[in-house]
Design a protein around this nucleic acid. Structure first.
Lengths: 202, 202
DNA sequence: GTCTATAGCCTGATAGAC
DNA sequence: GTCTATCAGGCTATAGAC
């Protein structure tokens, strides 16, 4: 592993290349289905050279997950108590859907991990994620009590947004098998927008 | 592999035990993450004995997937043109949600496969599944044209039902990390019911 | 920092006795 | 039909030269 100094340009570049390659490979084949060799080749390095930058396959995976968790939760983090309730929620949904469109690899990385019981990020879920969700559902509840949006179960409201938006990245093959050439997101955006307007209108 | 005769009671029992064990293991770890040894142990057999019943790990997986596809699509298959539109759709949704509750392993088996690009069931998706969905969306469209339910994109309506219901099985860990001791399905059923009533009311 | 070579483990599948 | 023993291949990770 590189010494504990400020990384050189080459070190930065290689680390970034490794993480990008790892994102490609892990998101497509899962942790166990990916090999260090695949990642190294895709990053343009030899296998031992890759293991010079990260001590193990596991370490690459962990670095990826924890590095991307913040990115993944940013849209919810930005939900603003001071904004207009309906517009805040709808724009949160748009941001999530946009992430499915632009960052499908990240979505599938987490999906792979979650489907298999989240062995590597269980703590982050029941701590960081739970805290963030609790914080934001409190805002949702307040809006409901003030009559700004309809009364629904706030946790399940969040789950539904995750499910609907991430579905298009995680199960992309299935969606495309059915839609054919039609762009999935073209139809998804107005559909989901309408759905939540109707659900949440007071 | 057993001879091409009518299977004995023991053969039936062992084949069933293997498939059940394989469902446990594959749904929890994915194809690549599962080992034949794990499956054999869970089925109460030795590894060579298991491979006496199925020629390879791949063969077990394929037998599982194709055997369960019909089960998985049955709820949609039962959507009845002659019934009351809103009630037909809502009861389809209830059946799907019930399957997530009672058959979470099956849901995760397919989820694992789909997230990784469905290498083993791609054909079934673009043929059997697509045909079934096309058939049923035609019914939905007719109901919309007759003004029985609201006009929405029929494909995305189906996707949304899959996403919302399967989310509770596939991402069970995440849901429970947030809900704590609360039963996920207790709150999910009325939430989803309300959601589609509001969305589809003409 | 990067490579070649290889150790050492795990895993899918087979051989052959019973 | 079921077992023990084992092979062959693929994998992570390390040793050691440059």
């Amino acid at each position: 592993m590189p010494k504990d100094r400020a990384p050189t340009r080459i070190q930065k570049k290689n680390r970034a290349a490794i993480l990008d390659a790892a994102l490609n490979v892990f998101s497509a084949h899962g942790f166990r289905g990916s090999t260090v060799d695949q990642i190294a080749t895709e990053a343009g390095l030899s296998k031992p050279n890759l293991l010079y930058y990260f001590p193990s396959k596991e370490a690459i995976h962990t670095a990826l997950l924890s590095g991307l968790l913040d990115v993944w939760l940013a849209p919810l983090h930005d939900l603003d108590e001071a904004g207009d309730p309906m517009e805040e929620i709808l724009s949160y949904i748009r941001r999530k859907l946009q992430m499915s469109r632009e960052l499908p690899r990240e979505s599938r990385l987490f999906a792979n991990e979650l489907v298999q019981g989240a062995p590597r990020i269980h703590d982050a879920l029941s701590q960081d994620l739970k805290q963030l969700v609790d914080e934001k559902t409190a805002i949702l509840k307040q809006w409901m009590d003030e009559g700004k949006i309809a009364q629904v179960h706030p946790y399940h409201l969040i789950f539904s947004i995750w499910a609907l938006t991430q579905h298009y990245a995680d199960f992309d093959v299935q969606v495309r098998a059915i839609l054919g050439d039609e762009d999935p997101f073209e139809g998804a955006e107005p559909f989901i927008d309408t759905l939540y307007r109707k659900l949440l209108s007071p």
